[in-house]
Write a protein that binds this DNA or RNA. Structure first.
Lengths: 249, 249
DNA sequence: CGATCCGTTGACGGTACTCAACTACCGTGG
DNA sequence: CCACGGTAGTTGAGTACCGTCAACGGATCG
């Protein structure tokens, strides 16, 4: 389950705020929800959980095909979900940010690999325990259902991008969605590399770099520092993203 | 909500077989489930439903952005779900076959348009009624949740195709998935046009046609009649679909 | 029998990929 | 302190795959 770039009216936080205090995550003080919930006498397990909850940049901690024994939430950092072809071609399915949930897959097998983009902390929650919670609080299923349906809509939007948009349109869409998701209209943080962006947009690193240059030259964006983008002309960028640009950006 | 090409362990039929007889669809004798369920005193509405349940080929019966007041199931024929860009570019999100369900979208607005590929019969079910059924039978939510999660996995697989596969790889993947979905290993029915296939695979009609010719010439497939494909070399096609082909098919 | 749609094939061109060189930026270690 | 290596990013030259435009054949239908 990925969470690509989009507004999500039904948030994970909203879903799990319903949980009673007993299900608060002890590894993440103050957080309630889909975290590894342990009791005092399970201190050994708690430590095991803690040791697993920090992931260094570049580390792949889930491989496609692994048995899906846990559901995860991101508490800090950025995670990329991706699928690979045998010859190494990669497609990034989505970037996960704090509050996003993943690992809820049918069939009990992970359908994508997960890798930390930067320093990441995770909470993991046994799927079996999730089943129990669903028994106890049926309303949560419904919320999660809406959440997954929302993700499906995002995935379908990404299909349009991958199938029908040009390189400049893809990058414009990406930057706008990223800014929107970060709650800013004229700025976006880019924790991922050009290669990651390329693998997300179905392009090559070189093409992404070139399009960045074009957007900078046309005055649509600026890059004040590494990993930051300032959106100078949101309207032009939005027109470009929707395929409404007359000629160039 | 689309149902693209894939095996679906959790079927819509399985989900709605749980429903009590009272929810049987009167427009579709013998069918129980997510059909327009009406009572005798609602005969007017029943007729209205009936008049809407048949859709002629080429008719778009849902537009992206329409209020999503109903959930639909396909009972016969094939439906294509698609999204469009302002300048007319189209991306087909998925093809729906009998038993598939769609229209379960968060936010109450359809996120894709729906058009009948051939002669289609539909059942429609008011969303408000679905809410009631969820109240009554919480287990159904869980089943539907698995169903949507399954669809999400299919959508992610399609992202790999659209973002990273070559034209021959896309067509090979499509034909194999189509055959598998139809329960046959060496044959597939193609109710849709070349243009539809192109819009589904992120290609042009011409490219699809050319690749068909190549696959025929290399002996991978044969086209015994219009709308039918015979898979002569499933291994070669599978290798091609996964990017394992050495040079050509 | 003309009209229309679908599909095929050809010629050509353009967008994006490949290969490659080069710079910038780190953190490491001499 | 600076040399060094590795990674990330940029830019250029050439190419290839696929898109565009166009002509044509076959099927269906009024």
């Amino acid at each position: 389950m990925s969470l690509a770039l989009a507004t999500r009216p039904v948030t994970q936080a909203a879903v799990f705020r319903m949980l009673p205090r007993a299900n608060a995550c002890e590894t993440c003080p103050g957080r309630r929800g889909l975290c590894a919930s342990v009791k005092p006498d399970e201190i050994g397990r708690l430590n095991a959980l803690r040791s697993l909850s920090k992931v260094a940049p570049g580390v792949t901690f889930i491989d496609e095909g692994d048995p899906a024994l846990h559901v995860f939430t991101v508490t800090s950092g950025t995670v990329k979900l991706f699928k690979s072809l045998p010859d190494g071609r990669r497609q990034i399915i989505g970037f996960l940010v704090p509050g996003d949930i993943f690992g809820f897959v049918p069939g009990g097998v992970h359908t994508a690999s997960a890798e930390a983009v930067d320093a990441v902390t995770l909470c993991r929650f046994p799927r079996r325990r999730l089943e129990q919670i669903f028994m106890e609080f049926p309303g949560m299923e419904r919320q999660l259902l809406d959440l997954v349906a929302q993700e499906l809509a995002v995935a379908q939007q990404q299909m349009v991008l991958l199938g029908r948009k040009t390189a400049p349109e893809r990058l414009a869409s990406f930057l706008l969605a990223l800014a929107q998701r970060q709650g800013k209209d004229d700025q976006a943080e880019l924790p991922m590399t050009r290669t990651d962006i390329a693998d997300y947009l179905g392009l090559t690193m070189e093409t992404v770099s070139r399009v960045f240059t074009v957007l900078k030259n046309t005055g649509s964006i600026a890059c004040p520092s590494t990993g930051k983008v300032r959106i100078l002309d949101p309207e032009a960028l939005a027109d470009l993203a929707e395929g409404l640009a007359q000629d160039d950006a």
